[in-house]
Design a protein around this nucleic acid. Structure first.
Lengths: 188, 188, 188, 188
DNA sequence: CATGAATGAGGATTCATTCAT
DNA sequence: AATGAATGAATCCTCATTCAT
């Protein structure tokens, strides 16, 4: 087949890093899983850490793009929130592990500047959304860095639980969680 | 000196595991940090994995005890939630890293049965609280496994942010987050 | 180069185990002696103990094959004894250390079942030879387990002495020892 | 009790060294077995190697004394041989492990000069006996270093087998082995 | 004297990375 | 370009030895 080896490696690394963590994942493991030779990985990535950063950046990029795509710049705060939440869930359905991976590997010890910058941009996007909502008196007046984890962290765990098969994922479930999260951050 | 070396080792391990993760923490690192010889660690713990499990169990135990202590069994759901949230924050202030450590090392690959059992008991406590609240029509009808992360995950992140010094921790901040979390899980 | 690294490792281990014993031989010693990296040994053998057992089994196998090859099944007891003794000496000349190694590492603490089974088969071969000789009234009526060490042990020590260069090895010497050993076990 | 700790340590070391070998025996093992603290061993012996050499020398000393005691200096060669063999068996019955220990730890890597000297003296005693027998035309004309192992090695293995309980030790058995060994070394 | 907790040097083993094929 | 055998630095862990009590 004409599949791209680089993609195979990234996909294998994503699964293994998410499942076991960066340090507990060996390069031969990734090679086996991607069905390439161990040496091949070094044709595409300078070393294991670079591989991690490439993967991280691609995941954040795709996640961020999903959020930005069709964002209702001039819609209501509630509409914007729905967009963000809905797109996150959508993205998570397509790329099961990406969100958990991003969340668990968002660590200054492993990430280079570029990766951190990209993560921060993504964070800033959500922070801006919250700040504008607060200016309109709709979002609860807490530091955005505190509000973000409330709905973002909830979503990450939700994804992990549904991925593990503990709970069946239905539209009602996602709608319910969205409402909870919205209630968490809005002014009452 | 009357200092307990076992405690020194556990404390050093807690900091390092939380900061770097289990796999990226070497035994000599722990030994240096605890100011003991590397071999000494093996007088107290059979191996690195056993050390992790001892630490995990002690942390969960102390955390869980804090929650149970003075729990208003017959109070309102709101009072119970306040107790849980307040005790969690209180515990987090005393034992900065314990909660992050528990959260990031709750992993079947590393934990033995005893550790997992203890973690589950702690989880069941919160699940029971939510279920009773749902029976009274006060807590939103979503699976507890989905609701728990919403406020528990929020709290974990909150602790991490305040620990990192990004945001100053004030009573108002904690009260605000408590309100957000309560709004997230209650019926409107 | 076309040299087989596995063989190099086994050969180096044979010399070192024989010289120093299993426990006093370090893996880096073997690696240095075999002119391979320490890690390379683990590509061929799961661990040091497995290396020992592989080596042990190969040595016993080759030794046993030498004895069985051309064994005069229907010759006289004396002819059979000559065959055994002569082949042992012959084998010892080719594979200097193998016999000492087998003798000094025949230890249940270090050997796995497979190794012990193989050693027992080799022992049974000599036991059968003695029992048949006893049935013919030619071999002295002592338990074979007592007779075997008399000539086998003698041979092991003989090999060690000649290997050490204490005594020059001549055909007369071997013929003399053979006669001594034969006199030891035959009926007079 | 007033038992001598030094003796307890030596006795424990004898058993363990014989069973497991010097390198596989740890100092704490010896301490546990001797029911003393690990540090106590260092009050009596400078280090593990010194302990080995003390033990070796004491064993060789006692063994050698047993052989020399009542040696029929002016008896026949056969009488002398009987004395040696009989005393060896007698010694082995009293001090089960000593002979195996001496045999398996007679190794230049571990023994100091004093120990080797003592072992050589013991060897010389048997060599002299054989040479005198050869001068009288009674002992087979082979290098003594080759003859000694034939009966000494046989005896060592005999002791090991009877100690292991494989074969019951009777006077007939020992008499039979003595005859075999004598037949091995005498002129026919 | 006796102890055993503490140590750290040294050994077994793993794994990121290289390189000859 | 792709491989995977080979490597050795770095890890976990053991144990001879010391020393405060």
């Amino acid at each position: 087949m004409a599949t791209n080896k680089r993609e195979d490696i990234l996909q294998a690394a994503l699964l293994l890093f998410t499942e076991r963590g960066f340090d507990a994942t060996t390069v031969p493991m990734i090679a086996d899983s991607a069905k390439v030779g161990a040496g091949t990985i070094y044709r595409y990535f300078e070393n294991k850490e670079v591989l991690l950063n490439c993967l991280f950046q691609e995941c954040v990029q795709r996640f961020f793009n999903t959020l930005k795509q069709g964002f209702p710049e001039f819609g209501t705060v509630r509409q914007q929130f729905h967009h963000i939440f809905y797109q996150m869930v959508h993205f998570a359905k397509r790329e099961r592990e990406a969100i958990s991976f991003i969340d668990s590997h968002h660590n200054p010890r492993l990430l280079n500047e570029e990766s951190q910058k990209m993560y921060n941009e993504f964070n800033d996007f959500m922070r801006d959304f919250l700040i504008k909502g607060q200016e309109q008196g709709i979002i609860y007046s807490l530091p955005p860095d505190v509000l973000i984890p409330i709905f973002y962290g909830a979503l990450v765990k939700l994804i992990e639980i549904t991925s593990a098969g503990v709970i069946e994922e239905t539209d009602e479930l996602f709608a319910g969680v969205e409402e909870c999260c919205w209630n968490a951050i809005r002014v009452h």
